[in-house]
Design a protein around this nucleic acid. Structure first.
Lengths: 212, 212
DNA sequence: TCAGTAACGCACTAGTTAGTTACTTCTTGC
DNA sequence: GCAAGAAGTAACTAACTAGTGCGTTACTGA
């Protein structure tokens, strides 16, 4: 007769590593690098704290790993958009919608980026994978702009990096500062209607910026 | 014969309070609420740690005081712009330039706002002074928009709050994420030329958004 | 001038916190 | 089937950190 395994958890290095990374992402996003607690991360990961030091080295190295994963995730999602198949105007609108939806669906991403910048980017410096992914992304936007100019729907001379920054900015700022925004401007930034209005305003902003 | 006072510092409650507040602003901006150290704030303020608890209550109350002061500072500066005396288009351009310059000259403001939002705005909730100042600011922008529509230079129906958010966003995002931006996009975000280019791009963005 | 009060300072504490030591248990290549 | 290394655990530590108890010193008003 077989006895179902009970106490001694099945050993699985990859799964443990992944649980730690997920718990760390959540804790670092919620509390920042200094505010997050290694013991809490271990507890949420259902792992022993020792495993964090075993797999990642230390708190800062874990933070570094979380950041790299978060950036690779968004760049991969962007790549799956296949904007090359759409007419330039639709491609651009879709990019604005995607960026907005990604921030809404992955709120940890925004606070992690804020934390990375609070620490002056020192946890990102080495990663060549990220640079490659970013380069591919800028080329994608450049290609949309080129096609738009060729079709006569976009005006020429727009810097794809500046455009990217603006597309990110108008969504990011609204969401990251939603708490102070709600207090200062006395409206609920997260109401369905408010979110719809903001997305529409942002699409309008970007199209007016590029249309010929 | 008079002896020049030496060790026992001249007592000045206001000056000590102000030194603590200034040191706290700097430390909280640099390291966040969780990362800042009360002992370090006291040391930088050349004050005894006991005084922080005497004047402000505790670390979180000190953080609250820093935030309120930072917001009042920017709202006061905005008020001194006297945009009502300028033609609408010039007034709006001046507001974009001012916002950009303020973020550049007061980098602590941005990281403090980020910290306030990381903590879900709970350190701001009570302040009625801030709400009043914000209301006055929104009216100012509304008035510029109204004059622009009356003159036929701006299109009608623009929400002043959305416009405000966008004006802040396109400067704020560029500057707060300058470290990760510099790494990912492989250009120095803080070079003189880069800053000029960004400001020009932002003015263009806002004008294209509102012009009739 | 002097008592009362506000400003200031020292030294301490109770509780955390990142990181470690020393060990047991499981898995796998041979 | 077994040696060796990898996965996992518990208990510990040294350093730190927000907050305080309590005494001292300088103003100020009556």
């Amino acid at each position: 007769m077989r006895v179902v395994e009970e106490q001694p958890r099945a050993r699985d290095a990859n799964a443990t590593r992944a649980r730690i990374l997920a718990a760390a992402k959540s804790e670092f996003a919620r509390l920042g690098l200094a505010g997050a607690r290694v013991d809490e991360i271990a507890r949420h990961a259902c792992a022993n704290k020792r495993m964090i030091y075993h797999y990642f080295g230390g708190k800062e190295d874990l933070f570094r790993a979380v950041l790299v994963e978060a950036y690779l995730d968004i760049r991969n999602a962007e790549q799956e958009l296949e904007l090359g198949h759409l007419p330039p105007r639709e491609a651009l609108e879709r990019l604005v919608r995607f960026t907005w939806a990604y921030y809404l669906d992955n709120p940890e991403f925004i606070t992690l980026v804020n934390s990375a910048n609070l620490h002056r980017g020192k946890h990102l410096e080495k990663s060549e994978r990220l640079r490659t992914a970013s380069r591919r992304f800028v080329s994608m936007v450049q290609e949309i702009l080129d096609r738009g100019v060729a079709d006569g729907v976009f005006r020429p001379g727009i810097d794809p990096v500046q455009l990217n920054i603006t597309i990110a900015a108008i969504g990011y700022y609204y969401l990251t500062n939603r708490f102070t925004g709600t207090i200062l401007f006395e409206r609920d930034f997260m109401e369905d209607k408010a979110l719809e209005d903001r997305l529409a305003f942002n699409i309008d902003t970007v199209l007016r910026l590029v249309l010929a």
